[in-house]
Write a protein that binds this DNA or RNA. Sequence first.
DNA 1: GCCGTTTTCGGCCCGACTGTTTTCAGTCG
Length: 601
Amino acid sequence: MIDEAGYPHMSPRSAYANSHLADLFAELAGYLSLESGAPYRRLAYERAAQVFQNHPVSIAALARQGSLRELPGVGANIEAKVLELLDTGRITILEELRDRYPAGLLDIMRLPGIGPRKAKALWSSLGIYDLAGLRDACVENRVRGLRGMGAKTEESILREVERADHADRADRLLLGHVDPSARRLLLALRSFPGTRQADVAGSLRRRKATVKDIDLVAASAAPEETMAAFAALPELAEVGLHGIAALTGRTQGGVSVDLRIATPQAYGNLLLHFTGSAQHNVDLRGLAKEQGFHLSEHGLEGQAASRTVTHEREADVYAALGLSYIPPELREGQGEIEAAAEDRLPALVERGHLRGDLHVHSTWSDGRATIEEMAQAAAAVGLEYIAICDHSRSLGVARGLTSDRIEDQVREIRKIDAQVPHLSVLAGCEVDILADGSLDLPDDILGSLDFVVASIHSGLGQDRTRIMRRLLGAMENPRVAAIGHPTGRLLGRRAPYEINLEALADAAVRTGTFLEINASYERLDLAAPMAREARDRGARFIISSDAHDAAGFALLDYGVDEARRGWIEARDVMNTLPLEELLPLLPSHRYRNRGSGRPVG
DNA sequence: GCCGTTTTCGGCCCGACTGTTTTCAGTCG
């Protein structure tokens, strides 16, 4: 059965989104951590939750097809629980655990420094079952009486409870918000006389769209001096106690900072360890063990020789395990180690590969710079072409353009295109895909443009079937070159609308429509796991800044980061092509080079 | 609970730090 939206086997059960399933299994794992014994049972549920969260296609659909157990970490038991949920709307064991423990204990366990043991002790000894009760107990100094908990623990718990209160639910920070601070700290760290090497580590180095802290590592000839100099940086609002090897602090912006210092000889081992991900480290250590080694942040120990070998560079650690160097963006435990062992890692796209930017705004709609200013800024960062894609009329909040205004704008763009050296300016539009599935501008106008990106900005609450009908309808329109921010997510603010990724990717291939990886760090849409799946199905992409001002071209870096996390290569990204190779691929061949001897390619 | 060129049992990454203990448990990355 294929329904109108073009994908098979829709059923009401698909109401269970992967993130919802992941939440339920994470909750299950949380409760199990309170139970004595069976620590690996808990781990199994945590892993399953992680797999569900990251999987690009519907877990519910896989379960119905009977192929759920093909996923790593999913066995008969977890499959049975997913099916039970789909069939009955509940998971019996989860219901039982919810009866046994108060839900607030899970919130308490999320506080830094509190794990299952302390949470359980607080509950059984003091009857504390939520954050409010915990705060009261701290204020009344009742916590410090418990075994293993003194005044310091109580103070730190109180601090964390209050922080959790004021964290306005944003426990994960946007990459684009944290990055500038991390860059400054790294620059300072590298400037100290004793510093041999320094890098950002952790999820920030893996370029995850959201991070929770800033991890830094350094190799120093004078660790104590380096540590003292770092602790004195004005960017740090708080510095905890620190020794020679580790420091914890907090930036003025309230972001946690961890710094680790290693000897130059073991720098590669430390950097590798603190870059993670946790799953990548687990996999790597497992591989090391198979080979008779013991891998830690201090080096590689041979079991026979029992001598620890250290490595100055990460690449040397990988090489010692028979692996090619794995870029940090791939270190998520998603098959990168197998690929490295077989020397078939992708040649990831780089910022330097991008020659153009095909989704840029101007003051004609909601941008803050004129077309000419945007063109100058693009040329200044080395781009060879841009497409001005302002909003269409229905997006009133963005002063969207009517057909008449578009025609005026095209004339203006042609004029500026002829004036700006070394840059081609294409006439484009970001046309709204309206709630009824029609496009917001007539075909003759769209057909007069060089580049049309079609996006959804309204009717975001529609179900998957209707959303997909709109997206697929837009792709079938031969004047549409790309789909903009295909899932509509705004990180930390708005969940994506639900799409059928397979159907979207297949339609992209069939119609020759590009899928956008929108580089705004609030969007990063398509997200990496989806981009990877779409790529595997043959889809092609554009990485777009969606810049609204002259500084906005810097956002392209984040788009490249997200694409790399999706295993995307330069050949998958159409705006890496020189303009004369891109144009023949576009629906419209109307663009004519009006240039005055500008270089081509 | 999952998994398997050490498979149907017996493992599952592991070291450092913190606060509190007087030899270590809990937590973290």
